[in-house]
Design a protein around this nucleic acid. Structure first.
Lengths: 338, 338
DNA sequence: TCTGGCACTCGGTACCGATGAGTGCCAGCA
DNA sequence: TGCTGGCACTCATCGGTACCGAGTGCCAGA
């Protein structure tokens, strides 16, 4: 087991390295932190920490830098979440309050997170699966062509064009619209399939095929659009670390362009509290030298989506975690109000 | 005036430099191109070209590289647009044909352009101002709360929440919906304001205020959403030029994150043909070392939006222009079909 | 268990000279 | 007049060497 002082040394190393971006040596450590011991002692501690795999030496005559395992310990046991200053809080609120619709909320959130953390921000649109239906609208565009519009409680709108097997009368369409809405409005997406299953049976035989087609498209939309959309921002911040990993920036950019990768990344977030994935803990190898700090957010108690930031493993974890958590809370509030 | 051979020398310089990414000297030029003259002659020509500002020497004992002015001459007079191979054409078609809705078309187009040109791709969503109305839907969410949904002929859907000054009955709402649609369906956005101007007068005094509010929101949507959305892709390709402008990548990324900058960039595109803006011709200084190749696209004869790529001034102009033009054509076709 | 001292390692920087690609200029030739 | 070969010159690049200093490991002593 590591003694209290050794943990303290690790904490100091992480803090200094995050600040200076340079390997930290024993002498510098004792000068900058009141450890109460001499550099020689710190050296011994460092040797132990290195043996245990928490820190690592780039080359013989250099200082130490934390390993992924070291950051992990730091995050789990040595660091809290730094709360934001009241000025920062007010800034967040001001920034988000001006949003006019869902797209705008997400766009502003991304910008805000990127600015606040000076890293790459990722925000997932509120999930449809956990959302409820606010309204379903059916529009007749042509005799056998219907436009289906789905409106969710988070303000999201999805539309689909449906080509029916036969002409679909205005009255039947109005009928379907009314019945459909009375059944599904306010219900969760997951519950919709069972609720509309028997609907075609109550229609005239002539219309049944068309009704089924429309319903099938509706269900398809529910499933398909569960593949969430994601918004990205602050990629320019990647260049801040240029001198550290100049060639590594490419795979990161590539990974960030893959919606699938991002979705997976956020998908691994636990439901409660801020989740941190450090370096190689990320499955995608393009992100092996980055850390992801993410958290769920939602209008109620339950998370309907996630947001977070991607940055170098050498990042200010307490500050980043604080910012991510705070932004998620405010976004949740905004969603609840609208 | 520049003689024919000097133009030929410039063309050769541009081609070689684009290929090798290294300053090109007189000897290498004569070896790689059948110019029919000796290096010494080429040197004289180069001296003239430099005096005229078409090429430039990084330092005394180095070869020449084209200036922005040189690229401009190359694009205007020396290079054609390279048509795509039939394989590339098929690839484009296959790639775009699978698209299910407008978002998907735009997303696929961005990916395609980025892959094809190996540069950063920018695609503007079809513009609302030049679009026509396919349908306006009004939904009553609460007595004094209406959701307005606008569907365009390009398949885009915009929604707005309207808080009315007073309760708005279902029948009045249905009435408004019917009259509104009969007036504006199939019309251009720009024509809508004058078409609905007198609508409130034909309603009961009680409803007039609400009708006006709804109409005002509709008109607002038309104007507001004229600020186009833009999709970006292939930013990872920027790292390909790392060794050329390692520090310049940052302002480029920053510029690309600003929707406003991108819109302005595409806004400067001429209506007909492929537009090329080289280096300092771009107003935004973050893009001073990049060129933009863009073109309008649309479902009919008229362009409803633009797309293009951003890359280093040292790019394969004929190839890029060919790819951009071809993609725009196919996207236009897809839009026309849907 | 901590500390001071000491020899050692090794990346970073600066300096030097050789190399060679590329140039400008000039005299000669068609 | 325009092209060519020759020649001296420039200067970035590259390899080698030497030095500096931060940082280490280890050991003897408190």
């Amino acid at each position: 087991m590591l003694s209290e002082r050794r943990l303290e040394v690790l904490r100091a190393i992480v803090q200094d390295y995050v600040g200076t971006e340079e390997p930290v040596g024993s002498k510098a450590l004792t000068e900058r932190h009141r450890l109460g011991v001499s550099p020689a002692t710190v050296r011994n501690d460092m040797a132990v920490l290195e043996e245990e795999g928490f820190i690592h030496q780039p080359h013989t005559s250099a200082g130490r830098i934390p390993t992924d395992k070291g950051y992990r310990l730091f995050v789990d046991r040595l660091a809290g979440v730094k709360p934001l200053t009241s000025a920062e809080r007010r800034a967040i609120q001001n920034f988000l309050d001006g949003a006019v619709d869902l797209d705008d909320v997400v766009a502003r959130t991304v910008r805000l997170l990127a600015q606040l953390t000076r890293q790459v921000a990722v925000v997932q649109y509120p999930s449809l699966t956990r959302s409820t239906v606010r309204h379903v609208e059916l529009l007749s565009l042509a005799p056998a062509r219907v436009m289906l519009v789905l409106i969710t409680d988070t303000g999201r709108v999805e539309q689909r064009l449906v080509d029916c097997p036969g002409p679909f009368g205005e009255t039947s369409l109005a009928d379907l619209r009314a019945r459909l809405n009375s059944r599904v409005v306010g219900r969760r997406f997951a519950d919709v399939p069972s609720l509309v299953q028997d609907l075609p049976d109550s229609f005239e035989p002539d219309d049944r095929a068309s009704v089924s087609t429309v319903l099938a498209t509706l269900l398809e939309t529910l499933v398909e659009e569960t593949e969430e959309r994601i918004m990205l921002g602050g990629t320019a911040n990647l260049t801040r670390f240029n001198h550290d990993f100049p060639l590594t920036i490419r795979p990161v950019l590539e990974a960030l362009e893959e919606q699938v990768v991002l979705l997976k990344l956020l998908g691994e977030v636990k439901d409660a509290g801020v989740t941190v994935r450090i370096g190689h803990e990320n499955a995608h190898e393009g992100l092996n030298s980055t850390s992801v700090v993410a958290v769920g957010y939602g209008s109620g108690d339950e998370a309907v989506a996630r947001l977070g930031v991607v940055g170098p493993t050498r990042m200010d974890y307490p500050g980043t975690m604080g910012a991510v958590r705070a932004v998620a809370r405010y976004v949740g509030q905004i969603l609840a109000e609208s």
